[in-house]
C-alpha cells in the first residue's frame, strides 16, 4: 500500500524525458524568442562545422594571401592558384576573412563559456552560502557583491589585462573575464534562494531534521536549476561582451583570430575609411547574431523558469 502511494507521487512529480521534450517544443512554439535565439546560434555552429570540413581554415594566419583583396579579387601574390580570389577577401595583413570567421567563432564562444561557467558556479555557491546562513556571512558577501556591481567589471579587467600583457591565450582570457563574471549571478541567485528558503517544502525538510547542506543541494538546487540555466546563458553573453570589449581595446590574444581581435584590427587599420566592408562586415554580423541569439534565449528561458513573466510577450 505504502509503496503504491510513493510510486504514484513519483509518477506525478517526475515527468519522462520525452514528455519534457514535448513540453519544451510546445513552449518554443508559444514563445518564439527562444526558438529564434537557438536557431541563430545553431546556424553559426553549423557554419563553423561546415567551414572546418570544407574550407582551408589555416588561412586565418597573416600573410596567407595578398593584403586588402576584395571578395573574389584575384590574388596577385599567388598567381595562377588564387585567380578566383577568396570568398570574403583578405584583410590588411593578408588573412583570409572567411577563415578568420570560421576559426574565430568557436574561440570567442569558448572564452564566453569558460568565464560563464566559472562565474555561475562561484556565484551560485556564494549565493547559497549567503542566503542560507544569513547573518554576518550574508552581510559580507552581499556587500562585496553590491560593491562589485557598482564597479564596472571591464575597468578591473583592463587593469588585469594591462598587467599580464605577455600574450594572453584564449583560455587565460576566459579565466581573466571570470574574475568579474560571478558578481551578477551571485546577486540574482541569492534573491531566488531567499524566496525559496521560506517555502513550505524547505520548512518541512528543515523540521524533519535534514542537514543544511542537503537541503541546499538536494532540495533547493534542483528547483533552481532552470533559473540557474537561464542565468548561465546571460553570464556567457556578458562574458563574451567583456572579452570582445577588452580585445577591441587591444588587450586580447594577439595571435588568435577571435572576433574581438578582428574588430581590433579593423579599428587599428581604419578599415571603414578604406571602405573594406568585407573585412568589418562579417565580424559585426556574427557578433550581432551571437549577442541577439543569447539575449533572446535568456529572455525565453527567463519566462520559462519564471512563469510570472509569461503574461505578455
Amino acid at each position: 500500500m505504502a509503496t503504491a502511494t510513493t510510486k504514484v507521487t513519483k509518477d506525478l512529480t517526475k515527468k519522462s524525458f520525452k514528455r519534457r521534450l514535448e513540453d519544451f517544443a510546445r513552449y518554443i512554439r508559444r514563445n518564439p524568442s527562444l526558438g529564434v535565439g537557438i536557431a541563430l546560434l545553431a546556424s553559426l555552429l553549423l557554419f563553423v562545422v561546415i567551414g572546418y570540413a570544407t574550407y582551408e581554415v589555416e588561412r586565418f594566419r597573416p600573410l596567407s594571401g595578398g593584403p586588402d583583396l576584395a571578395p573574389f579579387e584575384s590574388d596577385p601574390y599567388n598567381p595562377g592558384t588564387r585567380d578566383g580570389g577568396y570568398i570574403l577577401g583578405t584583410d590588411r595583413q593578408g588573412r583570409d576573412v572567411m577563415s578568420v570567421m570560421i576559426a574565430g567563432i568557436p574561440l570567442t564562444l569558448q572564452i564566453g563559456l569558460i568565464a560563464g561557467l566559472i562565474g555561475i558556479s562561484v556565484g551560485t555557491v556564494l549565493a547559497f552560502i549567503a542566503a542560507y546562513y544569513g547573518g554576518w556571512v550574508d552581510q559580507v558577501i552581499s556587500t562585496i557583491v553590491d560593491v562589485g556591481l557598482t564597479i564596472p567589471g571591464i575597468l578591473i579587467l583592463i587593469v588585469i589585462a594591462v598587467n599580464i600583457q605577455s600574450g594572453l591565450s584564449v583560455q587565460q582570457m576566459g579565466l581573466a573575464v571570470s574574475a568579474v563574471a560571478w558578481v551578477w549571478p551571485a546577486r540574482t541567485i541569492r534573491a531566488q534562494v531567499l524566496v525559496m528558503r521560506e517555502q513550505l517544502y524547505v520548512e518541512i525538510a528543515r523540521l524533519s531534521g535534514t542537514s543544511g547542506f542537503s537541503i541546499m543541494f538536494k532540495e533547493m538546487l534542483p528547483n533552481l536549476a532552470p533559473y540557474i540555466g537561464a542565468s548561465l546563458v546571460g553570464s556567457v553573453a556578458s562574458a563574451i561582451l567583456a572579452s570582445v570589449g577588452l580585445e577591441a581595446l587591444g588587450l586580447g590574444p594577439f595571435d588568435s583570430p577571435t572576433l574581438g581581435m578582428t574588430i581590433y584590427w579593423n579599428i587599428q587599420f581604419s578599415s571603414i575609411l578604406h571602405g573594406m566592408w568585407w573585412w568589418f562586415g562579417p565580424p559585426i554580423l556574427v557578433l550581432a547574431m551571437i549577442f541577439v541569439g543569447l539575449f533572446l534565449i535568456t529572455a525565453g528561458l527567463d519566462e520559462w523558469s519564471n512563469p510570472r513573466l509569461r503574461k505578455r510577450v
Binding site: G245, I263, N266, I284, A288, F291, V292, L294
Partner: peptide, 27 residues
C-alpha cells in the same frame, strides 16, 4: 533586440552608412 548589441558595433555600422557612404556626418 538592439539592447543586446554593444554600442561600438552599432557605431561601426552607423559610421559606414552615414559618414562614409552618405557623407552626412564627419567621419
Amino acid at each position: 533586440t538592439l539592447a543586446a548589441i554593444p554600442y561600438y558595433l552599432l557605431a561601426l555600422v552607423l559610421i559606414y552608412i552615414f559618414a562614409f557612404n552618405l557623407d552626412w556626418f564627419p567621419l
